[in-house]
Deep mutational scan, measured.
Amino acid sequence: EEAIQNFKALLSDMVRSSDVSWSDTRRTLRKDHRWESGSLLEREEKEKLFNEHIEALTK
Rank of each mutant, 00 (worst) to 15 (best):
L40Q: 14
L49I: 09
K48A: 12
D19L: 02
E2Y: 01
A3W: 02
E47P: 00
E42H: 14
D19N: 09
A3I: 11
K59C: 13
V15D: 01
V20Y: 07
L10Q: 04
E2P: 03
K59N: 08
R43F: 13
S12F: 08
A3F: 06
V20D: 05
T28G: 07
E2T: 10
L57K: 04
S17D: 13
S17Y: 02
I4Y: 06
E44W: 09
V15P: 01
D13L: 02
M14D: 04
H53N: 07
S23E: 15
R30V: 13
D19Q: 10
D32K: 05
L29P: 02
L29F: 02
H53R: 03
N6W: 00
V15N: 00
F50P: 04
M14N: 10
T28Y: 08
K8M: 06
D24Y: 02
V15M: 00
E42K: 15
E52A: 09
F50Y: 06
S18F: 05
T28V: 14
D24M: 05
H33V: 15
H33W: 14
K8P: 00
Q5N: 11
H53P: 06
E52T: 06
M14I: 12
D24G: 01
K8E: 01
L49A: 05
H53D: 04
M14S: 10
N51T: 07
E1I: 11
F50Q: 05
W22C: 02
S23R: 10
E55S: 13
K48G: 06
L10R: 03
K59M: 12
W35H: 06
I54M: 09
R34Y: 01
N6M: 07
V20T: 11
K46F: 13
Q5F: 10
R16M: 09
R26A: 15
I4F: 06
R43K: 15
H53E: 01
N51E: 08
T28E: 15
S12G: 09
S18M: 05
S23T: 09
K59P: 12
E44F: 04
L49V: 02
S23M: 08
R27E: 15
M14P: 02
F7T: 05
